[in-house]
Computed example of a mutant assay.
Amino acid sequence: MSASLGAVPSALADSAQSTSPDWHVVATGLDNPRHLSVSGNALYVAEAGTGGSGPCQAGPEGDEVCFGTSGAITKITRHGQHRVVRGLPSLAAPDGSAAIGPTDVMAHGRHWVATIGLGADPAVRADMPTTGRKLLGTMVTGKWWKAKHHRMISTRPRVLADLAAFEAANDPDGVGPDSNPGGFARTRHGFVVADAGANAVLKVSARGRIRVIGVLDSPGTEPAPFPPFPEIEMQAVPTSVIAAPDGSVYVSELVGFPFKAGASRIHRFSRTGHHSIVATGLTNVTDLAWYRGSLYAVQIADEGLLAAGEDLPMGSLVKVMPGGMAKTVLDDLPAPYGVAFSRGRGYVTTCAVCPDGGQVVAFNLSGK
């Protein structure tokens, strides 16, 4: 779904503090911000939250993550930023970093739709509090209305599709149940969702019926970064979906451990389900977006996530040129994740693994 921001981007950028010659900050203090979208005169950002007091369990990378209801959706306009949906489930490290929770959001009129991650075998939900048991690993929807001071608040989210339950019952890639719903795109008859845990691209109808569009194959093997350095198969890890004018969908790929630089691809699925690779040589891609017929991609870590070690990864926004080559649009972005465009201006979420440190930055597309 696309919409125009009209004159709001200029108002946002003009009132923001510049941190770089290339971009301006338009929102701060976000908790692990991921994908974002434009609707009407506003931006909407999915915040994965900061976890909570528990219960705790092993996360996707083996570290402990604890449950809480700190996930949120933030609305950004020229008047400021406001969390319009609160209380969504979140799993994060004890310090609130690297959270799993709300991952993507779209708004249209009074309605909103979001995906909420899980990053585990769906069976772990049985041991979660009610909110986690019902909402982790799902696509949810809700409505908002105006409250005091013209601020928006939301109804309780309703599950549109239980993607984790579908993974538990079907396991399309055949390597064991694991679900982590991520970016999605709206289509004529519903939505297409990237499930990063399942390595699958799923179609969700307007009534919540789920079917598999495709399963991403491994991009290859890579020596493990520890003795005796055995060859390991990298997981594909789809992260986002965008729709193309011809009815096809494009899917970005992060690539799993050891997160090799240059191993990420962009996939295309036609309306009939035919799969092809449209770009290679990218690194740890988290989001895609179209602008005036050109394809843009966010790389969360230009040198690969493993190369960052304990430091915050530095990434970029690139323009995918004909033939699959990439042209850098913005670089030296701290852990960027989502991207959206409107009328000559782009927006990127940064510090996507940071509690209370995430931002949305805006930049002009002139010459880029």
Rank of each mutant, 00 (worst) to 15 (best):
R209E: 14
I210Y: 01
I210D: 02
I210N: 00
R211Q: 15
R211Y: 10
R211V: 15
I213K: 08
I213P: 07
I213V: 15
G214K: 00
G214W: 00
G214R: 05
V215L: 12
L216F: 02
L216C: 06
L216G: 04
L216E: 03
S218R: 07
S218T: 09
P219D: 01
P219Q: 02
P219L: 00
P219V: 02
T221A: 13
E222R: 11
E222Q: 13
P223N: 08
P223R: 03
P223K: 00
A224V: 05
A224E: 03
A224D: 07
P227L: 05
P228F: 00
F229Q: 09
P230F: 02
P230R: 04
E231Y: 13
E231N: 14
E231V: 10
E231P: 08
I232R: 02
E233L: 11
E233M: 12
E233F: 07
E233S: 12
E233V: 14
M234R: 06
M234N: 06
M234H: 01
M234I: 11
Q235I: 15
A236M: 10
A236D: 03
A236S: 15
V237D: 05
P238H: 01
P238V: 05
P238M: 03
P238D: 10
S240Q: 08
S240H: 07
V241K: 07
V241H: 01
I242V: 15
I242H: 05
I242F: 09
I242T: 07
A243C: 12
A243M: 11
A243D: 12
A244Y: 04
P245E: 15
P245S: 14
P245F: 13
P245M: 12
P245R: 14
D246M: 10
D246A: 10
G247E: 13
G247W: 12
G247L: 04
G247P: 09
G247M: 09
S248F: 03
V249W: 07
V249D: 04
Y250T: 02
V251I: 15
V251Q: 01
V251R: 02
S252W: 00
S252H: 03
S252M: 08
S252G: 13
E253T: 05
L254A: 09
L254T: 08
V255H: 01
F257V: 08
P258G: 11
P258S: 12
P258L: 06
K260H: 10
K260V: 11
A261M: 14
A261I: 12
G262K: 09
G262Y: 10
A263C: 02
A263R: 00
A263T: 04
S264T: 05
S264V: 02
R265Q: 11
R265A: 12
I266A: 05
H267T: 11
H267P: 07
H267D: 13
